[in-house]
Design a protein around this nucleic acid. Structure first.
Lengths: 345, 345
DNA sequence: TACACAGAGCGAAACGTTTCGCGCTCGCAA
DNA sequence: TTGCGAGCGCGAAACGTTTCGCTCTGTGTA
């Protein structure tokens, strides 16, 4: 149905090779160039990427496997990644692992069948076995936001540990000692952030009683319930660290429905992905993740690997070049608002 | 690098045709079947979908073009769509139009080059020109959540008009007459919802003063600012209709920061996509959109079209079968909470 | 005038599958 | 014993590109 290069051949009288040359930016006589352009216009010709891919063995598709697509963090990254890849001539094929390692493994296999040229992965679990089919296919892989055991992978992530360390440090510097944490132990970034917090608390010799440690999912629900419970304690905390965007959302809702005021009665700091900073009143003090940067760096790294792969698979001396894996750890930024008050107790 | 059918041929001594038959579920001697399975296992063979696609002229990829990927509504739909398509053996290739009609048109062209088998589109604008390349390629298209001028397209959407009509009707039935609307005129669903509201207000002979009509984007920001402004009016409304999830989020934040109480001082009803219903206190009365249903119906419709296309392109009598386009309008559900109070004024 | 060389076009093979139509074998019935 | 048909397997063509190496033309140089 659709026009092919052959139709253009018939229309212009030129050979397939010449037309292909045109499509790939070669030199032709202006006269022939015009003929081809006219034919393309008239026939609405579009290159069949499947045929092209078959012979070049490049699909010009990048697989993106995310731990969970239905949240703001992921979607925002997807937007930035998609833009970047498109500019470079690649499509992205997105697969949602739904927080399930089994699904994740299926996704990788699936994408291998589709012959993707490279892979961006925000992994669900902590071990890298599921990537085996991709390693075997020898395509570049960049991990995003979370790393995997054993390393050896290219990876772009946020320095969660330092950022949460500093966040809690800030609470302490305002005199707080009764500090609660709403976070997650079941997600990679949650664990990192938790460790950062605990590390500082340890250094400051502050004990955190179990009822101040609210671990669950990175969800609105967990944030909401946890904050409710914290406020109902006999001795509620004077400050709360909130582990991600959804938790903030839930926690702030719970707080607003209570009699407590921020920052008068309780101080807040949280890990954010987005715009909430502009909104709430008082403005929240936030750890802001560099989402655009995160996505851009990951995309650039992958594109560079693809370039390298095509360019020189072997070093000049004939020896196999062993590539160093690159691990980029981006700092998060603490944006001060008015949600932390000096603690007098 | 990767194993091909040819390697299996060499390993088993069988012919390409036989192996292909195996891959496509044909009958073979158990003995040969075993040989092939063993070879596949050992060589880690995976079908090269590009080669397959070239000959079957099916890419087994569905293009999904969304008006804006970075929001909860879209992401949730994407999750459901993706699941459905995967089950049916299709991958989805997602393109974000970023609310820009130019980008949207590019997306369609791009996907045509990728030879997608079908298209799900949540369109940005109101006119269908941008779909022309897809129409020319004669692949099935299903519009989701928003329709286009001139129709003739398959389409699955929510009955926004009736739902918002009923929502405001409910406010009225509680005695409210000073009703404000926070919504959008720049988005298709926003317009539909607005019309539903206005229709009921007209029927009830209720005037809506301009300062009660807050039109902007479907964003947290717009919700937040609008609610702030409403509450600062000399004569604030006694009830507010909120046009979507993000608007609710912002509006509720603003409300919680104010001295106003819901439902004592102000009643609320809003269009939701998600879980907020379970959380806020008092529980919001909500118009809940059937997201799963929306996605499933759209996916099923598209898959059916793909089936039809392959099965019988022509009717038995040899005449071209003109397919009726299908327009599914799903009802939204009003879930009662405690956010509406009888109005005594 | 002869020669070399650059630039442009061409034919054919290759990429990894599917599919069509033919031929072989085997078992069963007459 | 012969004949027949079902069930498997096979060879070859086809899908729409790219690419390699060849030929041809025309220009500039010795």
């Amino acid at each position: 149905m659709a026009a092919t290069i052959k139709d253009i051949k018939d229309m212009t009288g030129l050979s397939l090779a010449t037309i292909s040359k045109y499509l790939n930016g070669g030199n032709l006589l202006p006269e022939n160039r015009e003929k081809i352009e006219k034919a393309i216009e008239e026939l609405h010709y579009e290159v069949n990427e499947m045929a092209r891919g078959l012979v070049t063995s490049q699909s010009k598709v990048i697989g993106v496997v995310v731990f969970n697509i239905a949240n703001v963090f992921t979607c925002t990254l997807l937007r930035f990644l998609g833009e970047r890849f498109r500019e470079a001539g690649y499509a992205s094929m997105i697969c949602d692992s739904q927080n399930d390692e089994q699904v994740e493994a299926d996704n990788i296999r699936f994408l291998m069948g589709k012959k993707v040229d490279g892979l961006i992965v925000i992994p669900v679990g902590r071990t890298p076995e599921f990537l085996e089919p991709a390693l075997r296919a020898d395509i570049p892989i960049v991990l995003l936001d979370r790393s995997l055991k054993g390393s050896g992978f290219d990876c772009v992530m946020v320095d969660n540990r330092t950022a949460s360390y500093q966040a809690v440090e800030m609470l302490c510097s305002y005199g707080h000692r009764r500090i609660a944490i709403i976070g997650s132990e079941s997600e990679f970034t949650g664990r990192e952030r938790l460790e950062g917090c605990l590390q500082l608390l340890k250094k400051e010799k502050i004990d955190i009683p179990p009822e101040y440690l609210k671990l669950g999912l990175h969800s609105i629900e967990h944030g909401y319930r946890s904050m409710q419970e914290l406020l109902q304690l006999e001795v509620p905390p004077t400050a709360v660290f909130m582990g991600n965007f959804e938790i903030i959302l839930g926690a702030v809702m719970a707080l607003n429905e209570s009699a407590f005021q921020c920052p008068a009665d309780i101080s807040l700091i949280g890990f954010d992905d987005l715009i909430i900073s502009n909104l709430s009143n008082p403005r929240l003090t936030l750890v802001v993740q560099p989402l655009q940067d995160l996505a851009d760096r990951a995309a650039d790294l992958l594109l560079r690997r693809l370039e390298e792969g095509r360019g020189a698979p072997r070093a000049e001396d004939g020896q196999q070049q062993v590539m160093e894996n690159e691990e980029l750890i981006l700092p998060a930024l603490i944006v001060e608002g008015d949600s932390i008050k000096r603690c007098s107790e």
